[in-house]
């Protein structure tokens, strides 16, 4: 089956290889983004349900863990646990519980998603607290 491959098949294979390479590159670029410049920035968790921002939590300012539950509009709930510097879903009554298995996140590499309850927890870094404490010497991108 590896001989006499038609032109169409060759092109499709090339396309598949490019897609795979592109995905790998995207994953690595995103993963590297966080390990390098994360200094002096504030980590903020945004909770979205049905696309609407429920709440934003400054994870850097959290000193003690606490939990709260988020009720889905169509029934069901997720118990969100906030720890210093990280956030995750501890309990959920969705059928697959993939959101619980996703564990606690402390980078914005991947959001936590509970598809049955349409809940998304996304992290972002912000340097808002730097503005009033020190004058930025330069903005280099």
């Amino acid at each position: 089956m590896f001989r006499n491959r038609s032109k169409t098949a060759g092109r499709l294979l090339l396309l598949i290889f490019l897609l795979a390479a592109g995905s790998l590159a995207a994953i690595f670029i995103r993963a590297f983004g966080f390990f390098t410049k994360n200094d002096g920035k504030v980590l903020i968790a945004d909770l979205y349900q049905d696309g609407a921002l429920l709440t934003s939590i400054n994870l850097t300012a959290v000193t003690e863990s606490y939990t709260f539950s988020v009720n889905a509009p169509g029934g069901g709930s997720n118990l969100v646990e906030v720890r210093p510097g990280e956030i995750g879903i501890r309990e959920a009554d969705c059928p697959d519980r993939i959101c619980v298995r996703q564990g606690y996140i402390h980078t914005s590499l991947l959001p936590i998603t509970c598809l049955p309850h349409r809940l998304v927890i996304q992290l972002r870094t912000d340097n808002t607290d730097q503005i009033d404490t020190e004058v930025p010497d330069a903005v280099v991108r």
Partner: peptide
Amino acid sequence: TKTIGILAYLPFLL
């Protein structure tokens, strides 16, 4: 979910 952020899963899904 109406949340653009879940596109972060796209490379993993591909």
